[in-house]
């Protein structure tokens, strides 16, 4: 058994404080995700509602914004905000701030499209039947439209959150020591003593990402069932 663990390179995890370092890296990734997700959900919902109003100026802005974000790889966006903004305008963001900005820009774009789509899929007659019952626009949104919107956006939102968590692995490119970077450091440091560490470390990171994202998927399944 010990041979298998060493052979697959899991032994490095018990050297020094490697476990703690990996968990610390995961925490960094999750921190960036958490801030980005919160900003994206709030800003994306707001923008989505605005987009569903079919106002021309908002449509042009949102179309442009969404297209740019979709076309641009997140890594390029990250470089522009971190390196580019510093050179062009002297905006020196910390790597963490730059990451949150980029992931929020991306998340807001995707979230707004989800919200717009779900709002537009709610039949106009739902607004009318609410109005016919004497509900104001605000009450119609609070009690009728938004609950249905949340139900319809839930699967897409959960998908977006897990994608954001996974994509935070890119932030190591601007010097943030998140879980993948920690993994690489551990592998590098033990290249001589445990040449097979790559498998063990990356397999562990896989497991860590899984443990971070799986509860979110479970939560969404639970919420969806509850909402039906």
């Amino acid at each position: 058994m010990g041979d298998v663990i060493t052979g697959l390179g899991f032994d490095v995890l018990w050297k020094g404080s490697n476990w703690l370092r990996l968990l610390g890296g995961l925490l960094t990734a999750l921190e960036i995700s958490l801030f980005s997700v919160l900003i994206s959900l709030a800003a994306g919902s707001l923008l989505g509602v605005l987009m569903s109003l079919n106002k021309k100026a908002i449509d042009i802005f949102s179309k442009l914004y969404l297209e740019i974000i979709r076309i641009m790889p997140q890594m390029v966006l990250l470089f522009i905000v971190y390196f580019g903004a510093a050179r062009a305008w002297g905006l020196n963001f910390s790597p963490e701030t730059a990451s949150v900005i980029v992931f929020s820009l991306w998340g807001t774009a995707e979230m707004s499209d989800l919200v717009r789509g779900s709002l537009q899929s709610i039949p106009k007659a739902q607004y009318e039947s609410s109005a016919a019952l004497g509900m104001s626009t605000a009450k119609t949104y609070i009690y009728v439209i938004i609950p249905q919107m949340i139900r319809r956006t839930l699967p897409g939102t959960i998908n977006l959150i897990t994608r954001m968590i996974k994509t935070t692995s890119l932030v190591m490119m601007i010097g943030i020591v998140e879980v993948l970077k920690v993994g690489q450091q551990i592998i590098e440091a033990n290249r001589k003593s445990s040449p097979n560490a790559a498998f063990g470390v990356f397999a562990t990171i896989f497991l860590l990402y899984f443990l971070a994202c799986w509860p979110i998927s479970c939560l969404s399944r639970y919420l969806e069932k509850k909402a039906v």
Partner: peptide, 11 residues
């Protein structure tokens, strides 16, 4: 008012 398509609140 009652509508042709009922328009109950599905949630």
């Amino acid at each position: 008012m009652v509508f042709q398509s009922y328009e109950l609140f599905p949630h």
